[in-house]
Design a protein around this nucleic acid. Structure first.
Lengths: 205, 205
DNA sequence: AAAGATAGTAATTGATTACTATCTAGCATG
DNA sequence: CATGCTAGATAGTAATCAATTACTATCTTT
């Protein structure tokens, strides 16, 4: 048996990361073992440690992978928008689509944040969320400058609740086990968010 | 050493649950061990199994404890309200206060939801969230009947995002490690939510 | 085709896990 | 003050974890 699947190191690392992301969609990241990662990859457990010095290094690579992808997707979505509110909506829907493709991502990031003493990976998550919030804050400020947002809006809270809305969708998906459904529910969720931040206007659909 | 601290069984069970809730505020519930629970209680690990048949039973008791407390607190808060929007606000702030007192609760519930195959405890969490959403839905419907909410509001999404707002606060607290701060940020967060659901009105503060 | 580098296996390590069997101290009753 | 029962201590168990070892198959380069 065993046609070995010799892969170059960087490709094996890439596959490892993808496998971890996929597995996080099925179980609690905290209970994920190197053995299960390896068996899913069709490789023995010890083989992982040829490409990563330890388990924590795997988490670092995974978080870096997620950070890069999510920021790229969300950034690209915002690019085509004509005004801040449209940009925020595009970001929101892009993020929802990303989560639908990778349902493990929210748990993964959440799991890292629950680490009591900060690890390299958990620091990366905090960094990701910090830059994410900064980007949101930029659009929100621009929207306020253009008068699109209601006066007196707490921009800090608005940025925090943008992510909160996403979490709400994820939670709902966890409850009724319907991951794909968040794509359908995404627009309504953002609608709610938009009404929360946008200035009152006379006539709208 | 070791003056034994003989407690009646039901009191020991109560202390166990409280200890688990407290520990969930400090570390990932998934990594919580019976040994750490016991040592925090000043008791040996084996002693726990005199009061609980297994670890899962501890989780069941913990979830039941949380469910009872949170529903009581939120229900009592809503009781004094004069209209649905006030009721929702009171529920929100009561929930925020409860989380501030027990920072481990969100992780605890989240952790149970991440269990892939449903356990008794995870079923209880889903049940808790289901009744919670029903209660929210009741107030939202009443609010819509009274014309307090904007027409065309997606009540389902509104109920989901109520919890999402709470999650947003929790996430923010996790990021900058400031658990107590969510009490201060609570009102602004609900303000945002209220603007998202409430009917436009001419003049308001 | 030979040889060194690379990527894998198989087996094992010590630490840690949930859980249990046996023994002992403390309490309430007569 | 003696007796029974309860709550906890002590000291285990088998299983599982991350990590390491010695060895082997495969790829690449010349």
């Amino acid at each position: 048996m065993s046609q070995r699947q010799h892969l170059p190191a960087d490709e094996r690392r890439e596959r490892t990361v993808e496998t971890v992301v996929a597995l996080c969609g099925e179980e609690d990241p905290a209970t994920l073992t190197t053995g299960r990662i390896a068996s899913r990859m069709g490789v023995t457990q010890g083989a992982l440690f040829r490409h990563f010095p330890n388990k924590e290094a795997i988490w670092e690579a995974v978080v870096a992978w997620v950070a890069e992808r999510v920021m790229a997707r969300v950034g690209a979505a915002a690019e085509g928008a004509e005004d801040p509110l449209q940009a925020l909506e595009a970001m929101f829907l892009a993020h929802v689509a990303f989560i639908a493709e990778h349902p493990g991502v929210p748990r993964l990031l959440m799991g890292q944040l629950q680490q009591p003493c900060p690890t390299p990976a958990s620091r990366m998550v905090k960094g990701l969320l910090a830059t994410y919030r900064q980007r949101l804050a930029g659009w929100l400020e621009e929207g306020q400058r253009r008068g699109q947002l209601r006066p007196g809006l707490d921009l800090d809270a608005a940025a925090a609740q943008f992510i909160g809305c996403l979490q709400g969708l994820v939670l709902q998906a966890l409850i009724d086990g319907d991951v794909a459904g968040i794509v359908d529910r995404g627009p309504a969720a953002f609608d709610l968010y938009r009404h929360g931040i946008q200035a009152d206007r006379g006539g709208e659909a």
